[in-house]
Design a protein around this nucleic acid. Structure first.
Length: 265
DNA sequence: ATGGTCGACTCTCGA
């Protein structure tokens, strides 16, 4: 049986409407089959669905005004895809605009999340961030056992010192504090592997570059906080994983950069 | 060094 190539990507687009030109340009070049977006920042009525259709993608989205919002875009070659929003565990909040689940029954399942950033370690949002990670772990235990699965998205955690510039200055940052990294590692200990690190064990490569820092991209001053975390079943199909910096060099780049993975299913 | 710049939208917040 011939193995079918599957390319997925996760991208914090930071406004899907504002970033539509670079998204169209990137998708036309990148051969992505399944795209997971975060921070679409648009209500569903105003989502640019037609632009995705004309690029050959079926798109599923759940957003709100100004903040948050997640979406899944699938090429027509992806058959039988079902997409739902929220953790679906009966608890509140549901995080409908931070959580999307995309499943092709019998083939694969992906959890796409925009993890709360947390603001400050003393802020209540940081506690919410920890609770969110606990619910991600509960989701894994509930839904990620056998079939090929990955947790993807803007997870707002840099797992290791290697994943940030100047870690000694970031010990109290909500995306790098020991507490949140420990919690993150505990979620992964369920049985997920950091796909980028599997293919690039020592790479100093980032997915987020702060707009406020001068020449962050060319100086390579950033954070690796966007991830593709695969279970054993999906790992066995993985052939590549890389950060695609090219869209960051285009007009109106996002502060995040796409993370891409290739599989042979 | 504790700044800086974006995006959406009222003006200031979130990142």
């Amino acid at each position: 049986m011939v193995k079918k190539p599957l390319r997925i990507a996760t991208f914090n687009v930071n406004s899907v409407r504002g970033r539509l030109p670079i998204l169209e340009r990137w998708l036309s070049d990148s051969k992505v089959d399944l795209l997971f977006l975060q921070e679409t920042k648009v209500v569903d009525a105003d989502f640019p669905e037609a632009a995705f259709s004309s690029m050959g993608y079926q798109v599923y989205f759940c957003g709100e005004k100004s903040y948050n919002g997640v979406a899944v875009a699938a090429r027509e070659s992806v058959k039988g895809l079902q997409v739902r929003f929220g953790f679906g565990d009966g608890r509140k909040p549901d995080f409908l605009t931070r959580v999307a689940v995309a499943e092709a029954p019998g083939a694969f399942k992906f959890l796409n999340t925009y993890v709360p950033q947390g603001k400050e370690i003393t802020h209540e949002d940081y506690q919410m961030k920890k609770k969110f990670l606990e619910r991600a772990r509960a989701f894994l235990e509930r839904e990620a056992a056998d079939a090929p699965f990955a947790w993807v998205g803007d997870l707002n955690v840099a797992p290791r010192e290697l994943d940030v510039t100047r870690p000694e200055n970031k010990k109290d940052h909500v995306c790098f504090h020991a507490d949140i990294r420990e919690k993150f590692a505990w979620v992964l200990s369920w049985g997920l592997t950091d796909l980028f690190r599997r293919f690039h064990p020592d790479a100093v490569d980032y997915t987020f570059f702060d707009y406020r820092l001068k020449d962050a991209l060319s100086r390579n001053v950033g954070w690796r906080i966007d991830h593709i975390l695969a279970n054993e079943s999906l790992m066995s199909h993985a052939v590549a994983c890389f950060i695609d910096r090219e869209p960051r060099g285009w007009e109106k780049p996002s502060d995040h950069t796409p993370l891409v993975a290739d599989f042979r299913m």
